[in-house]
Write a protein that binds this DNA or RNA. Sequence first.
DNA 1: CTCAATTATTTTAAGCTTAAAATATCTCTC
DNA 2: GAGAGATATTTTAAGCTTAAAATAATTGAG
Lengths: 183, 183
Amino acid sequence: MNETMPDTGPMTIDAETRMQGGEDHRAELRLWLRLLTCTTLIESEIRSRLRARFDVTLPRFDLMAQLEKAPEGMTLGDLSRRMMVSAGNVTGLVERLVQDGLVDRRPAPGDRRSALVNLTEKGRTAFEEMAHDHGDWIGEMFDGLDETDIDTLMRLLGKAKTSARAAQARVFPSSTDKDDAHG
Amino acid sequence: MNETMPDTGPMTIDAETRMQGGEDHRAELRLWLRLLTCTTLIESEIRSRLRARFDVTLPRFDLMAQLEKAPEGMTLGDLSRRMMVSAGNVTGLVERLVQDGLVDRRPAPGDRRSALVNLTEKGRTAFEEMAHDHGDWIGEMFDGLDETDIDTLMRLLGKAKTSARAAQARVFPSSTDKDDAHG
DNA sequence: CTCAATTATTTTAAGCTTAAAATATCTCTC
DNA sequence: GAGAGATATTTTAAGCTTAAAATAATTGAG
């Protein structure tokens, strides 16, 4: 055997992974489309039911869901990060929810740039009612999966999440350690 | 002691884990949130890269991707069903793509209500370049998954899709989506 | 302390998205 | 071959969403 050039199988990966000339990602693309289909399907159905039954939009429901888990309230920045939407988006959503009386906004103690957002009593009551049905609906959507399916999906989607975050971090290296902006 | 009810694990009776009247869909809710996180994460990253490298929006890319698979062209209705977005949405997207010269619109032969949309030569060339990078990016996002992971995810997401469609069909009759097995 | 950089939020402009109503055409039945 | 209902698309109004620029307050280095 010639050992000067050991075949290592799939080419060794270095930090700056470069996509090979002929690599095809057919399987990954199909997976991505299916993931998207599943999400869109469920999201549309939930959106439509929330509107029909409670006359509320999905983004407003999502925002209230975040607040319900934070009895101390959340800043707009917290909401933006948690919901994975832009800060400007949150500004508008909170504005409209304040109008509806479902949420309130008050200055954050100790930081005059910041505001704390909370569910009002009306908001909490409304949310609890919606959340109950919402939970049932999600249960219904996944009715065809058994416990093992769910566990497996949780595990593999966790893996996918980690993988996607790594890809994201590769393009946005957590700077702050470089003086690329030459002052 | 009592062997009529085998212990299946942590079945402690705190007020929250008791199922009285209503079922508990905590596992399904967690799965839904994780599915949503995965999708949002990847979608945001793809959206951002498409904008940065090609100055194109994700919905426009998606529409062009549908057209590329249909050399005979597609009607607006076809596009709406395949992309799982409203008809009015497609009207606007096509309008803007026509403006950009990436797509053309012509009357459908034999049905004066309908229009056929096609990629222009410019559109096809532009799309092929974008699709190449897009494929690499998706490959990168799922880099942490091996072949088995992908197969398993495909299978279980297929099951989830079927389940969600069943739930949807209980209220609405519908069909069509974008990850159906096809050519 | 002082000023530059950072952080929190808002504003702006453009585009996306939906639901519902409106328009136009087609198809089918009698 | 009329008219009823279905289908394809557009329009409208409202709201969602983002990126980028602007505003305001905080932090930290010197």
